[in-house]
Design a binder for these strands. Structure first.
Lengths: 168, 168
DNA sequence: GTAATATGTCAATATGGCTGACATAAAAAT
DNA sequence: ATTTTTATGTCAGCCATATTGACATATTAC
């Protein structure tokens, strides 16, 4: 286990096509994201929920009063996909709906106390992981990290997303 | 569409619990990864394959001669999950197997010419996105970006992964 | 009053994970 | 030489999450 090598023993030394630093960066993001999501995933698995539940809990928790259309745009899923999971969260009493005051067609979403607790439970290990990485890498690295991430977002969505994240 | 606000209109100003910069960083990673995977996903969708196919093509392409056990460890999936997708790639002639010379139980994996072409087609837009983000953010930012990503990886796997990525 | 919007829901389908069980060939250990 | 372990494959079934398409309701906008 400790001495497994990823290097293919019979790999020819000549090595293919794409600029290697970009390939490395792509793989690094893959691995980092894999582990980044692993913390809540583990808890979710034991609780009988999935990653989709966490995403909803996170965004409803971070943006109380968010409506369904906004949530759909953020998650980039269909309302049917959202509906299935959201319905469970409502039934389980993690999320509650209130009609919008300006537009009574809208269902504004809020976490209940129970939802807040569960969300915190899911997010805490993930936050700790990020905090630890930030501390280890140092503030300059963090600034660079955030800058690159912003530029990975679709140019057409970038401003919208960044403004949204920084609200509050 | 252009003027959708993510800010919940009725959000109370008091705002809950977690350190906000960490929450922002978590969301930023979510959005960046969402868009980072969207390029190949679009092509895959039109080709009738899925993200799982891309992951295998990527790692077999990057590490020719990788064996099944190594691939499983990297992807963190079961052999049954891998098997279903790998079988398709073999049948379609994107990947080929050769028995290991040292250990003839092993099936070493290689891309065929067809596989290399398809992999390149999938990866090119993703590479361009990363390259563009790196250029826009600048070299110092990239260094910080990579540093933080490394520290997001599980400590127990970190050295293994980083060594692997930086191989030959 | 009619049209558009926000939301919900039913049904069918696909993908990609999972567990458990079992099979084969080759290497390693005794 | 025999037994055990390892590397791989495969069958079957289950679950979570996504999709498309169709349709229903309430409310707002024209």
């Amino acid at each position: 286990m400790a001495d497994i090598k990823i290097f293919a023993a019979e790999t020819p030394p000549e090595m293919a096509g794409e600029p290697d630093d970009i390939r490395q960066a792509i793989e690094l993001l893959f691995f980092a994201y894999r582990d980044f999501t692993s913390d809540p995933d583990l808890i979710l698995l034991r609780s009988g929920y999935g990653r989709a539940h966490h995403r909803i809990l996170h965004f409803v928790g971070a943006y109380p009063g968010i409506n369904v259309a906004q949530l759909l745009r953020i998650l980039r899923i269909t309302k049917q996909s959202l509906g299935r999971v959201l319905k469970q969260l409502l039934k389980q009493g993690f999320v509650e709906q209130r009609p919008g005051k300006r537009d009574r067609r809208q269902r504004l979403l809020f976490l209940t106390e129970k939802g807040r607790k569960f969300e915190a439970q899911l997010s805490t290990p993930q936050q700790k992981r990020v905090q630890q990485a930030f501390t280890a890498a140092g503030p300059d690295a963090v600034a660079g990290y955030l800058k690159v991430l912003e530029h990975l977002i679709d140019e057409t969505e970038r401003k919208f997303i960044i403004d949204a994240i920084k609200r509050g």
